[in-house]
Amino acid sequence: MADEPRQGGYLRQAWLVIVLALVYGGALAATQTALGPRVAANRLREAYREIPKLVGLDGEANIVPIELTAADGSQRQAYEVVASDGTLAGWVLRASGQGFQDRVELLVGVTPDVSTITGLYVLDQKETPNLGSLVAEPPFRDQFRGLSTDQPIAVVTSTPTTTSQIRSVTGATISSTSVAELVNRVIEDMKTPLRRLRSGGK
């Protein structure tokens, strides 16, 4: 191909890039319009599917996202779960922090008076497969159900002796401890604001 003369400046040479940018931009805008709502719905669906189960409800519930100032001053998100008959079924709290390998995201369900934990669900984790990742499985998670929030939960490697102890996943002590620590911290931070909200608002 012969050398292109540089007359007409960059605009003449770059016309293809500009046209392409506009065409592709249009294509992307169309993609976003068509698929955007579905993607947003997907993101909500996982959390919303689990939230009623975490407060012990079987079917549909009214989930209201709320924002509260936690005990440490930060703004936190939580979910108010209202049963079909209008009564408050419980709260679901979001917790996230460092696990063994990477970040762990949790949903913790508590009773309306924040006295008992009603469930735990792991939204996202990147722990070691077959080891740390087992914290997301029912056997480990179910241990949290029914525990009181008065005392922090401790993780032991043998059979638990008190009601505030749970057993770690074999070979994944740090992942198990991280999850328990996250649960303890979020409950400690949100206990008072939630109780205040409940007594003040209702």
Binding site: L28, T31, Q32, G36
Partner: peptide, 9 residues
């Protein structure tokens, strides 16, 4: 407004 579809470009 969400312009994140242009992020990769």
């Amino acid at each position: 407004i969400d312009l994140s579809v242009l992020s990769y470009i």
